[in-house]
Structure formats: structure tokens, C-alpha cells
Design a protein around this nucleic acid. Structure first.
Lengths: 214, 214, 214, 214
DNA sequence: ACTTAACCGAGACGGTACGTCTGGTCTTACA
DNA sequence: TGTAAGACCAGACGTACCGTCTCGGTTAAGT
């Protein structure tokens, strides 16, 4: 992530000189980092603590991550991201969108919600961390929503004058608002109401296509 | 603010024994705190720095504020809050709402935007700070919006099945989303589009009452 | 001790105006001070602690004592000094001297020994304290010894060329040396040996007049 | 000095892992500490000040010294102790003793006298400091005197019934008494009188072996 | 009885230093 | 060259006391 080195790859035998990076070490560090995050939250997340639990040196951590924030973000993503990409495309883009948002909200309701809270907070103070979290975690989710919205737009399900970019913010914004500011619940009922209001304002017909409420 | 002691209550003039709190000191501390926040942001905001600039002792700060976060929030509010209450009620609640949101966005576009970003971030780590910021700054703004929405609801301008609480989150959420996460601009065009989408989804007729776009 | 005011004295009825000093308060402060010294030593002796235990205000303490050291010294003396003046003059000045030294050593072996240690230490850092301790406590003991020595000298019991002042230091010095530096025991055997050596070096005949060793 | 860890012991070349202690840092700290002691005395001797002047971190100081007292003692000794070991053995142990005592008194008359005063005082409050000062500075001087006394005793120059240990206290005690308590001068005349009285009391013949008073 | 002045308890104040903690860098020996 | 270990600088943290100050209220003597 920090250094590139033209990516070996030329031939199967081509290798950089010196001892190669230890993947065992990298994995141990990320695992220890995530464990600490999960057990104690970011407040007790210290580089020394991670190094000690991983049996690694602090210098090794700083060689591969620019700051403790970027380490925390990467550790979080390795553990969490896979769970968020579970929605597959169907014939109805708006239905896909609903599923995506419900899934994310479900995840944010749990332990992961507290972690994103803290990571977003960290991103305000440390720009490396903020950029990494945005580009590698938050932006991809938004992109997925944008894709669905674009398909719906192309399929004529959204009003012509709608700004898709704005619509994406209108969808995700209230969720983070409740997570970060309100601390109000983001339960299923809320998500449904949110989707209803937003799609009501954006959709063409009255057919907001909410699935039967069971 | 910190201790109550059952309030003596004998007469309205009852006073605690001992030297009373110095208002000059309190004011100097808040002023110094705000100056540092404005000049250098929260990164360089230290209790030692505030004490030194205010000509106060650190102990005095810790006597009256539980953490540096609560001090920062209070200093911010003393300086900023007055500017946000400038919207007076008119005959049209939805027009009032538009004005409120535009005004807040205008303020958040400036220096204050960075400060709320940092204070909200701080509130994630320190619950005292988070509660204070919410109860004394963020919640009052949301309440103002709720009041306008309720008036509109009562006046039949909003659809019967709308949940007003959700609607408030849908209005403010996207703004904070851009401030905290996207870092996308919250310019007037965006705010107008936001209001259009949201009120389109919530209003009864097609009359979304956007003022003529000049 | 702190203020003089021309010493009343003009007539038996002359008095300063205003509320007179409260003796109850003075006594409570000295008592509390001594209790803390005895229970916890000088390490935990704080003016705030004394004021709290005495039910007095800190200002009251600083009105009558220049520093916490002088308070400690006075509290110590009020409690200890009376025990040290118990030796009455007899026909044999050197025997009196022996009794004085043995008595002082006995007292220094106990709790009081630790307190003088700490007070002498304090006197090194704070000159008010040092002067007070010297003039009101240590010097008077030395003076008593000097008086006995002078009587012995006048009675021809000491060699003509002896310097009495030096002799006093030679008597007391080793005791404080053990209390402050060595931490070696100042038991009766040591005191006797000390007296033997010193008086052997100073007395005229071989008659060092040690009482029968029972 | 602080941790031992059973000393590896495998071979004389065994070393602890990790970065070794920086001698440059240690030397800079001791130097800065002594400079501050010499310039301002112990009153203005603060760990923060030492760290700042040495260009060291406070943590580094606390890693290697248990308290500011032990740091002060070590800094003092590194600078002063060499000057006190300048007396070489001659044929006359009592003459050596006289020289030792005169040399020490000469040193204590200067700046070092104030420092030992303050360090001894400090040793009363902090037992680590007291023990270190005693074992590494005061006791060795006393040992040197004891050695000379033992030689004199073996040579028949001291009376059979004399307790050498007591005699050492009788020699050094009065000097510290004047330094710590009296604040009386420890000039050459005093030291000579002191030695005369003490050796008169301890020596066998009348030959107290004072060098001709020129 | 009324005024005046110094007293008193309480506790907030500015200030200084404490000893702890963590972030990020540097220096060893070994692999 | 990478790694574990751990010492290093830097600097903020929150605490503890110092000695001073500012309240409201008390207690005499002098009017």
C-alpha cells in the first residue's frame, strides 16, 4: 500500500532483493488490530497494543501503514467488507437498492456500527485515514447504490429532472445521521419509511414498489 | 452546572459558601478556547494552550468542564449559535424550512463547518461531549425544523402518512453526510435539489413551493 | 509572630480594634497539624489537609504562619518540647549533661526522631522554617548543654584550652549524624560511648565521672 | 539499575534484545542535572527542566531513575566524588585522617556543601534517595576514615577500649551538625579543634600528633 | 443600638511540577 | 532487506498543592 516497486510479476523467478515481506506478520497485525477494535473499541486501540498482541515490532507496522488510523481502517475492512457485498443484481434496480440499504443498516446496527462511527470520526482528524476509509469502504457502497439508481433512471423509473448524485446522498445521509449524530435507531421500520419518502420524491408513477410489508 | 446540592431553596437569593465562580475567568477561557479552535482547529486545541492564553490555571478548567471536548463544544456554541437562530416564522412553514436549511448550509460551508465536523468526531469518542453537542446544539436546530414541519403538516401541506421525525433526518442527514463523509460541496444548488426531492416525496400537491429559481 | 503593631503595652486596657484572634481556631489548627504529622509524617502534611481537619480556612492558617513549614515546626514543638526540659540542675554539671543527652536520645529514638529528621530536612529548603526550628527548638537544647559545660569549666572539670562551643557540637553532632545520615541506632550504649570519648578528650583528670554502669 | 532479569548469564557477551540504552542521552541528562543543581540549587531542580536542557524526554529520565532525588544524587556524585578521594595512605594513619577530614570540610565549605545539605534533606523524604546517597557517597567517605582508624588502632595509637564505629560518627557528626543545623562555619580552626578533642579522647599517649600549627 | 475593623470558613483562583501515556522514529542483533 | 525488541524525543494529559483572593457572615470595642 505504501510502496509499489513495479510489482514483480515479470517472471516467476523475479524477486526484490533482501528478505521479502512476511505475510504471516501482516496477517497477525491485522488480526490483532481487529480483535482490539472489536473488544475495546477505538479508545483502547494503540499501535503498541497491536504490536504486542501480534508479536510484532512497532516499526514493522509503521513500515506498512502510514498511521494508526489507516491500520484501523484496513483491519476493519478486511473483517467487515465481505459481508456488505452480498446483494446481487435482479431485474428490479429499485428493489436491489432497497436490499442494499437494508443490509447495510442491519450491519450498522451491530458492533460494526460503532466501529464505522469511530473510524469516520478518526477520518476527520487524520486525512490519510479519512481518504482511505472513503475510497476503500464508503465510496464503493455509494457506487453500488448509484449503479442501481442509474439502471432505474435508464429504465424510466425515476423522474427526468432528478440528480442521481444528490439522490444517493439523500439515501445514505439519514442513516449516518442517526448513527453519528442522533444515535437514533436505524431499524427496519425507519429504513422503510426513509426509502418510501425518498423514492416517493424521485420515482415517476405512484408505484414506489415497496414489497409487501411482511 | 456540575454540582447541585439540593439547592438550599430557603429563598431565591440562597448562595453557596466560599468564593463564587469568576465570570471573568469563565469568559476568558471560552474566548481563548474559541480563538484557538478558529485559528488552528481541534488538532491544536489543548487544555494547556487554552489555560495559557486565557491566563487561567488548568485546574480551573477542569473544575468546570469535564473534558476538553465539552469545553470545545461550549466555546463553539457561545460563538456560533446566535447566528443560526436568525429565521423568523412566516405564514409559510415550508418556506421557513427552506430558509433554515439554506442558512445552516451557508454557515457550514465556512470555518464553522470544519469545527462541527471535528466536534461531531470528538463526540464519537467522548460521550459527555457527544451528549452536550447533541442536546445543546444539534437537537435545537432539528427541533426548529420539526416545528416548521409540524405546522406544515397541520396546514395540510404534507401527506398524512408521513413520519415527521423521519423527514427531519432526511433533511439534515444528507447535509452532514457531505460535511463528514463525502466532503462534497453543500452549495445552494445542492440544497435546493435536496429540498426538492424531499418535499416532492412528502408534500401533498405538486406545489413544492420552491421560490422562483432566480 | 508575623505582625508586630507596636506591641500594645501602653496600658493594660489597650487593644487593637476588630475581632480578636480566635484561640480555639489556633488550638484546633495546631492539634490537627500535629495529628497529621504523627499519623502520616511530613509527606502527607498539607495545609489543605490541616485546614480541613481543623475545620479552619486556609487563609486563617496563612494569616498566622508564614508557610506550612513554620506551622509544622510550631505544631511539633507544642507537642514535644515540654518533654525535653525535664532535667534539673544538680551539683555535678557533667552528670547533668549526661542526663540531658540521654533524655534527648531517648526521645529521638521514637516517633519524634522521625519528625525532627523531616523538620530539619524541611529547614534546608525553606529558610523561615530552618530559622524557627533552630531558634525555638534546637538552639535551646544546645544552650542547656553549654550552660552545663560552662559550669564544669568554671569548676575546673574541663581542660583550659577546650573550646566550649566546639565541644557542644561534638556532643550533639554524632547524634544527629546517626538520626539523619547513618540511621544507626542511638541506644544507651552508643550514647555512653559517645560521652566517654568526648569527655575523655575534654576532662582534666582521668575522672570522666561516668555513673556506675547500671 | 532498575530491572535485572536474572542476567542471561550464558556468556559474558550476553546482551538484552532491542535498542540499547543511549549513553549520550544518559550523559546529557546527568550533565544538565548537575548544571541546574550548581546554578540554582535543588529548589529549581525539576525533572522537566532537566529534560528540556538535556534535550531528552521525561520518560527517558523516569525509565532510568526512580525519582528526581536519585537523579540529583547521581548527578552530584559524578561531578563531585572524584575530588574527595585525593588522600593517599601515608605511614601515619592519624595524619591521613586529619587530611581526609580537612579535605572534606574544604569541599563542604563551597557550593558542594549546599548541595549535600539539600540532598541529605531530600533523603529524609524519599527513601530511595536517602539509601543511594548513603551507600554511594556518604558511606564510602566514612569507610575511608574507618580504615585509617583501624590502622591507628592496630598500630597502638588508640586506646584499647575505644569503639571505632562510634569514633567515626564522633568525627563526622559535628561537621554535618554545623552544615545542616547550626550553619556555623566549618573552617580550618574548627576542624583542628574538633580533631584535637576527639583524638585527645581516643589516643593513647599525649601525642595527639597535630602538625605544627603553621 | 450602630459603626467599624479585623476576624473566620469556604472554596475558587493562577501557577508550577508531577508522573503517565502514546505517537511516531531510531538503533541494535538476528534471520 | 525485514523483523522483534525496545529505547528515544516530544508534548499533552489530568492531579495535587501551593499561597492568594473574594465572598458572606461573626465578634468585639468604640461611639
Amino acid at each position: 500500500m505504501k510502496k509499489k516497486k513495479a510489482a514483480a510479476a515479470r517472471s516467476p523467478a523475479a524477486r526484490a532483493p533482501g528478505r521479502p515481506r512476511s505475510d504471516a506478520s501482516r496477517a497477525a497485525i491485522l488480526k490483532a488490530a481487529y480483535q482490539i477494535l472489536r473488544e475495546s473499541g477505538f479508545a483502547k486501540f494503540t499501535v503498541e497494543g497491536v504490536a504486542a498482541r501480534a508479536g510484532a515490532g512497532k516499526a514493522t507496522i509503521y513500515r506498512w501503514w502510514t498511521s494508526k488510523g489507516t491500520l484501523a481502517v484496513e483491519a476493519f475492512m478486511v473483517a467487515i467488507a465481505p459481508r456488505m457485498d452480498a446483494v446481487r443484481e435482479s431485474a428490479s434496480p429499485l428493489a436491489d437498492l432497497r436490499k442494499q440499504v437494508h443490509l447495510a443498516a442491519a450491519i450498522y446496527r451491530g458492533r460494526a456500527g460503532q466501529l464505522v462511527r469511530e473510524l469516520i470520526a478518526l477520518g476527520q482528524a487524520d486525512s490519510d485515514t479519512g481518504k482511505l476509509l472513503l475510497s476503500d469502504f464508503l465510496e464503493p457502497r455509494r457506487k453500488a447504490a448509484l449503479t442501481a439508481l442509474r439502471r432505474a433512471y435508464a429504465g424510466g423509473e425515476l423522474r427526468r429532472e432528478i440528480d442521481i448524485e444528490v439522490l444517493a446522498d439523500v439515501l445514505w445521509g439519514p442513516i449516518f445521521h442517526r448513527v453519528l449524530i442522533n444515535r437514533a435507531s436505524i431499524n427496519k421500520v425507519f429504513i422503510d419509511k426513509l426509502l418510501d419518502v425518498v423514492l416517493q420524491g424521485a420515482a415517476t408513477g405512484a408505484h414506489v414498489s415497496r414489497p409487501s410489508p411482511g
